[in-house]
């Protein structure tokens, strides 16, 4: 098996998932590097390669001008993987999708500067065909390694499609709702191992929704058990799932 050529690309994002990769530093990632040939990686190198076996794309698609670059990556890559919440679902960037005044609020008199012009934030899949997604903000390293390992063997990766709740139960974590708190774990895609509730922090669904989230039941639960008023309960899941909600723009 010749080493697959791999490239990393970034769009609208904090580049945190790339940093997460270069920060791996542990045995797992160093070992993985023996099996892949990283030929493009802006955070770590400047060269540009031609054909790629796997393109990893980070960040959301939020400027029409990015479409061309994405299409160019798609054209020369056998497999495209959107990694991290921004690329997979639009992530936290999509918070702006239902706002109008954030430019003025954030940039004041410079709000109209041309480089600030952007559309709503969308997942990479809104511009090009994405083969697989690595969810999470940041993405999960273990899942990343597992997905790459599967692809090295031409095996379709398995991505969980059940809510985070199950992972909390496996951790014997006390439910946030039992602690008088709220949580989005009931509709959030598992696979992270539920570290946030374990630390007493509600799940914000950074891995996005499961494929069929029961949103009505979520709102009802946030009101009845989480003590939220109805508009907050309705808006609560926007942080990471704006593009997956029923009121998507």
């Amino acid at each position: 098996m010749s080493k697959p050529k791999v490239g990393f690309f970034d769009f609208a994002s904090c580049e945190g998932c790339q940093i997460e990769l270069t920060n791996f530093g542990d045995v797992a990632f160093l070992e993985l590097i023996n099996h892949i040939d990283i030929v493009e990686f802006r955070e770590a190198m400047s060269e540009k390669a031609g054909k790629l076996d796997i393109a990893f794309i980070e960040g959301s698609f939020t400027r029409e001008s990015d479409r061309k670059r994405l299409e160019e990556i798609r054209k020369r890559s056998a497999i495209v993987i959107a990694y991290g919440a921004c690329a997979a679902t639009g992530g936290i960037n999509a918070l702006k999708n239902h706002q109008h005044d954030y430019h003025e609020c954030v940039y004041g008199k410079d709000a109209k500067a041309p480089h600030l012009a952007s559309n709503i934030a969308l997942p990479i899949s809104a511009a090009i065909k994405v083969d697989y997604s690595v969810y999470g903000c940041p993405m999960s390293r273990d899942e990343f390694i597992r997905i790459v390992s599967h692809l090295l063997h031409d095996k379709q990766p398995i991505i969980p499609n059940h809510p985070v709740c199950m992972e909390c139960k496996l951790n014997e974590t006390i439910c946030r709702f039992h602690d008088g708190d709220h949580c989005l774990g009931v509709v959030a895609r598992a696979g992270c191992g539920a570290p946030c509730p374990k630390d007493g922090i509600p799940c914000e669904a950074c891995r996005g929704f499961v494929s069929t989230p029961n949103v009505d039941s979520l709102v009802k639960t946030l009101i009845n058990k989480g003590g939220m008023h109805s508009s907050r309960a309705w808006n609560k899941s926007r942080m990471f799932t704006n593009n997956q909600r029923g009121d998507v723009k």
Partner: peptide, 27 residues
């Protein structure tokens, strides 16, 4: 109607014994 399909009821159940089998490679 309100079910989240989260599997919590199964996971904490003392008599549930369904399982999945998966293979994974080491690094």
């Amino acid at each position: 109607d309100d079910c989240f399909s989260c599997g919590s009821c199964n996971t904490v159940c003392p008599t549930c014994y369904c399982f999945d089998v998966q293979d994974n490679w080491n690094v």
